[in-house]
Every structure is written in structure tokens, then in C-alpha cells.
């Protein structure tokens, strides 16, 4: 059973260049820090390949597809269900017409997909989040931060490695009210 470093305090190393940050991740891994105890925070969406990290899993598309199904069902209920509650004949058309039904179901499906994808982003990210969390305001101004958790004996090794790779700052991660 592996020791968990996740309970320990977080450290934050701030880099100027994404190349250095990517190298730093390799070094931290060599020191023995687990992938799950590492996090990269950046002002740009660097792909996992650039950072040399495993791809993060996202359920947003799945949530979206679920929303599309909900929307489709709602649209179908609107078009093929509600007219039965109070049948009204108009213009010699069928009570449950198919072409307008396709329209309503299409729009409802799309709305469901969009709303659920949006809500999916919020929920998966835990938004809104207004309490303290490890962060540095310079990240939005172009710096790349690596937040890592390590066991006490790994700390000095990690700090030295970070400095050697050009980290402009490496310290206990400050938490900031977001």
C-alpha cells in the first residue's frame, strides 16, 4: 500500500515557460511524486501531450448526451403528449403532426444538450467556488504553476529540482480566496 501525500500541505512552483514546466513534471515524477498529487495551473489550455501528463477524464460530453435525451423526450412529450390532453383540430392537419414535431424535438434536443453541457462544466469543476484554494494571481498573467503534494523527505529534493529548472518561485502554496 502506497503512502499518500495528498494530506500534506501543497507546494507551488511558478514557471515562465511551458517547456520548463513540462520538464519539471518529469523530475517530480522521478522524485517519486504520484501523478495524482500533481496539478498544473495555467492561463492557457495546454494539452496533456504538451505537458506530458495523462489525459484528464471529462464527463461533459456524456452529460451533454444525457441532456439531449432529456430534451428529446421533452420535445416529444410536448408534441405527441400534450395535444392528447385537450385535442384541438386545426386546418385539417393531423392531431399529432410529424414535421412540426421534428422541429420541436430538434430544438428541445439541442437546448437540452447545450444546457446540460454548460451545467456539466459547472458541476465537474465544482463551480461556483468562492473559498480558499492554492493559486497565484500571476497565473492569469502568463505564468504556469505546478501545485504538488509530497512527503516530507521529498520536499528538499523537489524544491532543488524546481529551482534548477528555472522556477521563479517555489514555496508552500498560498491559498487565495477565489
Amino acid at each position: 500500500m502506497s503512502e499518500s501525500a495528498h494530506e500534506t500541505a501543497a507546494h507551488l512552483a511558478l514557471f515562465d515557460e511551458v517547456d520548463h514546466a513540462a520538464d519539471a513534471i518529469v523530475r517530480l515524477r522521478e522524485i517519486g511524486i504520484y501523478e495524482r498529487d500533481l496539478e498544473v495551473i495555467s492561463g492557457l489550455p495546454f494539452s496533456h501531450k504538451i505537458l506530458g501528463r495523462p489525459e484528464k477524464r471529462t464527463y461533459v460530453p456524456l452529460v451533454g448526451v444525457f441532456g439531449a435525451l432529456v430534451g428529446f423526450a421533452t420535445g416529444a412529450a410536448f408534441n405527441f403528449g400534450t395535444p392528447l390532453l385537450y385535442p384541438m383540430r386545426v386546418g385539417g392537419q393531423a392531431l399529432l403532426p410529424i414535421p412540426p414535431g421534428l422541429l420541436i424535438m430538434f430544438e428541445a434536443t439541442m437546448l437540452g444538450l447545450l444546457v446540460f453541457s454548460f451545467v456539466g462544466v459547472l458541476i465537474e469543476n465544482g463551480f461556483p467556488f468562492f473559498r480558499r484554494k492554492e493559486y497565484h494571481p500571476d497565473i492569469a498573467n502568463g505564468k504556469i504553476a505546478i501545485v504538488f503534494h509530497c512527503l516530507p523527505h521529498q520536499e528538499s529534493l523537489a524544491y532543488a529540482a524546481m529551482r534548477q529548472l528555472g522556477a521563479e518561485k517555489v514555496s508552500r502554496a498560498e491559498t487565495i480566496v477565489l
Partner: peptide, 17 residues
Amino acid sequence: CGRAPCEPVCPVFATQH
């Protein structure tokens, strides 16, 4: 009209058969 064009276009069934 038996197949009245006015009827289906009303969004609230204000005109119907």
C-alpha cells in the same frame, strides 16, 4: 374553410375548428 389556413398558424389555438 374545411382546411382553414388560419387555424394551424395560431400559436394559442385562438382560432380552431
